[in-house]
Design a binder for these strands. Structure first.
Lengths: 145, 145
DNA sequence: GCAGCTGGTGGGAAAAAGTGGCAAGACGCG
DNA sequence: CGCGTCTTGCCACTTTTTCCCACCAGCTGC
């Protein structure tokens, strides 16, 4: 389970270290690697542990290769996925296309979202957090379900 | 149950000790750790005992990682949560992003709010207490529900 | 074909951050 | 006023993060 936000640096080669907390959580789940892809709804990079990724892939594979609607979604998002390894220091290399898409410059923010992790450029994160959620889309997480 | 306000110091590393009263209450409920997160409505840090937190997590985990509406809410309200342990002296480390968000400098104020606890910078607390509640938002706490 | 770039990797080591605990001082209670 | 509890400054130690350099492979141009 991933929670919390962490400010990290990303070096000139596009490497940034996964927060130790997340590494532990990953290790505890016995998942040594993660998958990075575009987050479909806004400018973030989605980082998934392998188990979540395979779930997603299963759905994708169940669609017909001729169903344009599905294929368009696959093309746009799933095709951006890269499996990445952590090096001895717990760093991941963010592939250039993703780096560019997420606008990752110098300072990045790792955000635990429960099952998955988001990775933002610092500015993009600030923007996203500052934006108000339209009233009709607010979910009362504290309310009775 | 948490009530009362306590003025404490926060050290250079961002540690501050949870009031002994609260520690007792926590211990009595058999909850050894707390969760810190942004309070959504104003510049305070929310501290939850684990039981309240797990309720929240259950809701979060039930959502799809690709459901934009949910994810936006999770990002804004839950992603800032950090589980923190108390050390032998009952101190917690407030993670940097939260420290920054709450403007915690040197003096902080712990406030018991019933089920949960708030943590403020002293100045922010004073400000919040000094502000008038808009007439249409006043609730008669003693009235019949 | 071979020396010299260039971009990608890996890792050493310094710096920064987090952890733990002692012990002094403040505080409150009887 | 004395005692015990709570809080906090400080110091030592560990872990994490980041900077930077060395190495390797592939390409280029001579």
């Amino acid at each position: 389970m991933f929670f919390g936000t962490f400010n990290h640096a990303i070096d000139a080669k596009g490497r940034t270290s996964l927060p130790a907390r997340f590494r532990e959580a990953l290790a505890a789940a016995g998942e040594p690697r993660i998958v990075l892809m575009q987050y479909p709804h806004w400018r973030a990079i989605l980082a998934l542990p392998q188990s979540v990724w395979t779930e997603l892939v299963k759905k994708v594979m169940s669609a017909s290769p001729l169903d344009a609607r599905w294929q368009r979604n696959v093309l746009k998002f799933v095709s951006t996925a890269h499996e990445v390894d952590l090096d001895v220091h717990g760093r991941v290399l963010v592939p250039p296309p993703l780096r560019e898409w997420g606008g990752l410059e110098k300072e990045v923010v790792w955000v635990g979202m429960g099952n998955v992790i988001h990775l933002y450029d610092k500015a993009a994160y600030a923007e996203q957090m500052a934006a108000d959620i339209p009233a009709d889309q607010v979910v009362d997480l504290f309310g009775k379900s």
